[in-house]
């Protein structure tokens, strides 16, 4: 196999990787934020809120990510256009980002929920007893501890998300994989570029997983 074309292609590939990382970081931040709200909703005593949150989680966990991406890229702008009366260009990056945030939130929510449930009830009781509000209890007592416990799991889910971002290929967003594929096609060495892409994903995910494992050992209470 002739790998000679890869070196001159590296700057272009880096652009793709930059987009992948940007998508990843924003999706993790958005997904964890939304996921936390959904987890709080699921644990709330408000029945309607709890079942709405549950429906959200079940819904997004039932459908393929590829379908969600297509929805947000092709159909949602149509709905926006109808709501605003104007063509509302969302653009592929934002569409994919929103799709990832909404989708991953369902997965992050389950992790956060488990994290919150792992905190002894007595702590919340004690905090209420000294006059804290619900918001204060969650913000100052429960969530900080829960997040400490959940961090490794959240990071592991983020590594899965890192790999899943490659699915934006379906809508033609130029992420790392798509850039590699497209360059490979044009240069006429699709196989070499695909193998390179696989190797890069492997090395980064593997290294990240190893780091998460070490973190897990250090954070263990």
């Amino acid at each position: 196999m002739d790998f000679s074309q890869i070196l001159p292609a590296l700057p272009g590939l880096w652009q793709g990787m930059a987009l992948t990382l940007q998508l990843l970081i924003l999706a993790v931040l958005g997904g964890v934020a939304l996921g936390t709200l959904i987890a709080l909703g699921r644990l709330s005593h408000h029945r309607l809120l709890a079942s709405a949150a549950k429906l959200y989680v079940n819904y997004f966990r039932s459908i393929p990510l590829l379908l969600v991406i297509s929805w947000f890229y092709l159909v949602v702008p149509l709905v926006l256009q109808w709501l605003t009366g104007n063509p509302s260009p969302v653009g592929p990056f934002t569409s994919c980002l929103v799709a990832f945030v909404m989708f991953e939130a369902a997965y992050f929510a389950e992790i956060v929920r488990a994290g919150i449930q792992s905190i002894p009830k007595g702590q919340a009781g004690a905090a209420y007893a000294i006059g804290m509000s619900y918001g204060q209890v969650m913000r100052l007592v429960i969530l900080p501890q829960a997040f400490r416990k959940m961090t490794p799991l959240l990071l592991q889910q983020s590594i899965i998300l890192f790999q899943d971002t490659s699915l934006v290929y379906a809508v033609g967003l130029m992420d790392f994989l798509n850039t590699a594929r497209s360059k490979g096609d044009i240069i006429g060495q699709p196989d070499q570029f695909l193998l390179l892409a696989g190797a890069v994903y492997f090395v980064s995910s593997f290294a990240a997983s190893a780091l998460v494992k070490r973190l897990q050992q250090r954070l263990a209470i």
Binding site: Q163, S166, L167, L177, P190, G198, F202, S205
Partner: peptide
């Protein structure tokens, strides 16, 4: 496990579909 969990599914699919037959 390390190999198959750290490469995106789509990349694996392309490898099986485009590369392996060759």
């Amino acid at each position: 496990v390390a190999l198959f969990r750290n490469v995106p599914l789509l990349v694996q699919l392309f490898v099986w579909y485009f590369l392996v037959p060759d």
